[in-house]
């Protein structure tokens, strides 16, 4: 998870914030409230930007560092929204053996972001995943629902250029 604030501006609506406040009110004062509230927050906003984590911290009266500690610990939480094109590089065993790590770094270099992050224009978000069930095609990268198999790092640039 990238250790930074999302580069995409926060666009939460008053309705979303109102829903979050209701969830916070339901859980406030209960032990272990942070997890369910963050899960609900991610459902409402799609991700957990700093603005939302501050609302959770203030609402539950716990330090922001504690909220962020939980949000950054679990892979299920994301600090960034998903891009128009969601890139997922498989790091499962077969893909990894076939060189997925260099594939991933090629994407990172091309877009200038690390897994978990999004490009400032909101176009691409990058994640790694564990096995998409296409081991015969290893190494595999997915962009939204498009599957690219048997890739080499030099193919990454031209493929990404096709997504406008």
């Amino acid at each position: 998870m990238p250790n930074c604030k999302s580069v995409v501006p926060y666009r939460g609506t008053p309705e979303q914030e109102e829903r979050l406040q209701q969830v916070i009110a339901q859980h406030k004062g209960q032990p272990g409230a942070t997890m369910p509230v963050l899960q609900a927050a991610q459902e409402i906003f799609g991700y957990l930007p700093e603005e939302v984590q501050i609302m959770v911290a203030e609402g539950l009266e716990i330090p922001l560092s504690e909220v962020y500690g939980v949000a950054s610990f679990y892979a299920q939480f994301t600090l960034n929204p998903k891009g128009k094109y969601q890139i997922s590089v498989c790091l499962g065993t077969a893909c990894y053996v076939k060189g997925a790590a260099s594939l991933l770094s090629a994407v990172e270099q091309k877009l200038g972001i690390v897994p978990g992050a999004i490009t400032p224009d909101g176009k691409f978000s990058l994640d790694s995943c564990r096995c998409v069930g296409a081991c015969g095609l290893a190494p595999v990268m997915m962009i939204n629902n498009d599957v690219y198999g048997r890739l080499t790092p030099d193919q990454v640039g031209p493929i990404l250029d096709n997504y406008k």
Binding site: M1, N3, I62, P63, L64, S65, E66, Y68, G69, S72, F73
Partner: peptide, 10 residues
Amino acid sequence: EVGVIGPNDR
């Protein structure tokens, strides 16, 4: 009870 630091990531 200031809590400005904590363990991040895992």
